[in-house]
Amino acid sequence: MASSTSLTAIVILNWNGLRYLQEFLPSVVANSTGCEVIVADNASTDGSISFLQHQFPQVRIIQHTANLGFCEGYNEALRKVDAKYYVLLNSDVAVTPGWTEPIIHLLEQQEHIAVCQPKINAQQHPDFFEYAGAAGGMLDTLGYPYCRGRLFETLEEDRGQYNDIEEVFWATGACMFVRASVYHALGGLEPAFFAHMEEIDFCWRAKNAGHKVMYNGHSQVYHVGGGTLHKSNPRKTFLNFRNGMALLYKNLPARELFTTIVLRILLDWVAAFRMVVAGQRADAKAVLDAHADLLRNSGYWRRRRKEQRMKGNFPAMTGVYRGSIVWEYFVKQKRTVRDL
């Protein structure tokens, strides 16, 4: 553990991300007064450690002996960090002056809030929201994730429409403030996910445990996105489809599980067919591989489901759209959350 407890620890998980540390770590160090800044390294081989040691000796380094992925990389690191609040921050995020203060103030004022994220804009197109988190994450009744400010591939221009404080369903793992006591009480991030959708699973578990997940638009950061895996990468396709289905199986109440899973399987097959038509055969195969992997590891997922503390009536939870964003987006051509 750290020698003394800090109020806020900003923990950046790094894997061969030297170029991002060089570009974005200076803004984190300069704009995070009073916070402990830590880099947890997943056995990088690109000179990241040497760079940190020589250029940022004030930044604490936690070195893993292997690439543990996003989930276990954070779980292992945060066991060694003593703070009241953790900030899980991607290495490709530029922060702004005073960015932590509005969120920490909100967490200090309302103890029932476990998780919160800031407004996240695209670093390369700063007037637009960023894909991974935008203005807070939501789910539809089939468990498809979307964000205020982003429906599928359509990103809204930031005109101040989300300069609010709002309860959401999930907060992005690109910049997620989380109460440390809740993080450990819930067992951290789902290790089998490796990466992608782990923050949705964590936030769902936090909500089931009686906590709130919030968005605070008074804080703003800028995210590159796709820094580790490009969004068209078959590995990312596999993780998104595998984890998306596992997310539902782990957390949905029994009365909603069967119908939702069946519909999602059918829609996954439709998505795979569209990938084939578009010439993305490797991505289409990744969808089928994701389903096969779930079947192979069904025993593990059954055990994880039994461990969950579920609440009934998923569609009634705050942050759930009582409809299908697939239908609204692809059939009815709606492009913003406010059109839903």
Rank of each mutant, 00 (worst) to 15 (best):
V277P: 10
L267V: 11
T237M: 03
T259A: 12
F241A: 02
L229R: 02
Y249P: 00
N233C: 04
K285I: 12
A254H: 14
N243T: 06
M275N: 10
L248S: 02
M245A: 04
V262G: 05
A284H: 07
A246S: 06
R255T: 14
P234M: 03
N233F: 01
T237D: 05
F273G: 11
G279E: 12
S232W: 09
R264F: 05
L239W: 00
V262R: 07
K285Q: 15
V276H: 13
V270T: 09
A271V: 02
V262M: 11
V277S: 13
L239D: 00
W269N: 14
R281A: 13
V287S: 08
A254L: 15
R235W: 05
I265S: 13
E256Q: 11
L257F: 05
L257I: 03
G279D: 15
F273Q: 10
A282H: 11
R235I: 07
L229S: 05
M275T: 12
R281Y: 14
V276W: 15
L267C: 11
A271C: 08
A254V: 14
R281N: 14
A254C: 15
R255W: 05
K285S: 11
K231I: 12
L252G: 07
R242E: 08
I261M: 15
A271M: 03
L248A: 03
A246I: 00
M275Y: 15
T260P: 09
H230M: 10
P253L: 06
Y249W: 07
F273V: 12
R264V: 07
T237V: 04
F258E: 14
N233P: 02
I261R: 03
A284L: 08
T228C: 04
H230P: 10
D268M: 05
F273K: 12
R281I: 10
V262P: 04
R242A: 03
T237F: 02
L229W: 02
T228Q: 06
V287E: 07
I265W: 11
L266G: 14
L288W: 09
T260Q: 10
P234D: 08
N243E: 05
F238Y: 04
A254Y: 14
E256K: 02
L239Y: 01
D283T: 10
R274P: 06
Q280Y: 12
G244Y: 03
M245P: 01
N233G: 03
P253G: 08
